[in-house]
Write a protein that binds this DNA or RNA. Structure first.
Lengths: 239, 239
DNA sequence: CGAACTGTTGAGAGGCTTCAAGCCTAGTGG
DNA sequence: CCACTAGGCTTGAAGCCTCTCAACAGTTCG
């Protein structure tokens, strides 16, 4: 039996090639030279399901870009209850806010599935911002998208009922994560987390989901969510 | 009596000098040359109290910067009810989102007092973004501030009671608009609008305000709001 | 000075939360 | 591979918070 450990240096570049970085909107704006410099300085990080990526109040050394998996971004309210702000997925940026303002993180992030993130150090990102307007513009557009969604969400949560918000949130999840050929939602989410997105308690969310099931708008086999009548859900959501 | 109208070309630069543009954080980052180019292409616009600055769904031809007065930025919910997202004041930027994404406005804006805005056309702003990283960075920081506030607000509105949110909103208004030596809040706001900020109906907001008055936390002479016990308000707001 | 708007309070209804109890199921360890 | 257990899911009952509707007082402004 050979006990000599083989060197594994060649693994790193091979991994990079498979990441498909260049296909993400944000990286498409970089020149080949810039991209190589990013790759030279960035790290691929794996997070297993449920592991914490960062916590509210921590300091970030760079920017995360989601390559694979799903990240739950949330805030903890005064009573310890989570408010989920978004589920980030492939191509989404997280942790950019505190990078730009040099403040501490105002949200927490957790891997919702086994997740692969790309961590780009702060100085590389800031360099790119200064050099490459297209890259900066793309980032700003991403920020604008989040601002728009926040504004819509504030209005909804302030004015709509739990039933309306639940219907709307299901449709948003459908848009973001898609469905398979049986109309099964392609993210597995606990009732508690769905409640934490909608901004209610688990019991209320479950009651609304049961209503939807009884009205033949959804099927709920196990933890799956199957859409049966999207038009009616849209009508309920009032969108 | 001399009926010849005197030329008034000199008025324009004199007005500009008095605007104090260079003292605003956002313009401090511009070189003298850039600032002159901005001034050459921008327009000062006056809006009288209650007049509409832009509406949800309209297209913007540039960016507004508030020079004087207060602007109410809001969304109309499905039932026609306003949700106030912010009150913008001196130095704040409005309408930048649709400028960056080329989308239609997703909010409406109204002058809450007689207001002076500085309107900078889109191409000038985009040029500055490309040329001057410090200016872009300052704008991005402004966006980050709004994102952070949005996230906090979503969490609060989803988890706190009307009483807690009302206390918090009063304290936020105090921070943003200040108080005079009698602790009188330096913005006059209707109960309805306060309710539209807090995310409740007018009657509920009034009941909470009356509670605060009965508990000697506030005085409410006419439309003024006088703070009597900020520490207790903070305790109620849970911040 | 009157009309229109804003502010205030009461009563009642209903949506949502809380507390409680039991079932289900997914993942772990033997 | 199965049994076990912790965590997720579900429903019921009770009560509270908030909204709705209504009536009227106060204030502002043409």
């Amino acid at each position: 039996m050979n006990t000599i450990v083989q060197p594994r240096r060649r693994v790193q570049p091979i991994v990079n090639i498979d990441l498909g970085l260049r296909e993400l909107p944000i990286f498409k704006k970089l020149s080949e030279e810039e991209m190589l410099n990013v790759e030279l300085n960035s790290v691929v990080k794996n997070f297993s399901k449920r592991s914490v990526i960062y916590r509210e109040g921590s300091r970030h050394s760079g920017l995360y870009c989601v390559l694979k998996g799903i990240v739950k971004v949330y805030k903890i309210g005064g009573n310890g209850k989570q408010q989920i702000l978004k589920f980030a997925q492939k191509g989404d940026l997280i942790g950019y806010r505190s990078l730009l303002t040099n403040e501490l993180a105002c949200t927490s992030a957790k891997a919702y599935e086994d997740t692969v993130l790309y961590h780009i150090p702060q100085h590389i990102i800031m360099e790119l911002f200064q050099q490459n307007w297209n890259f900066t513009h793309e980032t700003m557009k991403f920020m604008c998208k989040e601002l728009k969604e926040s504004n819509m969400f504030i209005t909804d949560i302030a004015q709509k009922s739990v039933r309306e918000r639940a219907a709307e949130m299901l449709l948003i999840l459908k848009d973001e994560f898609g469905v398979d050929k049986y109309n099964t939602l392609q993210i597995t989410i606990t009732r508690e987390d769905l409640a934490n997105m909608v901004g209610t308690v688990t019991e209320s969310l479950i009651r609304v989901m049961s209503e939807f099931r009884n009205e033949n708008l959804l099927e709920l086999p196990g933890r799956k969510i199957v859409f049966r009548d999207i038009a009616k859900l849209k009508a309920i959501a009032n969108i």
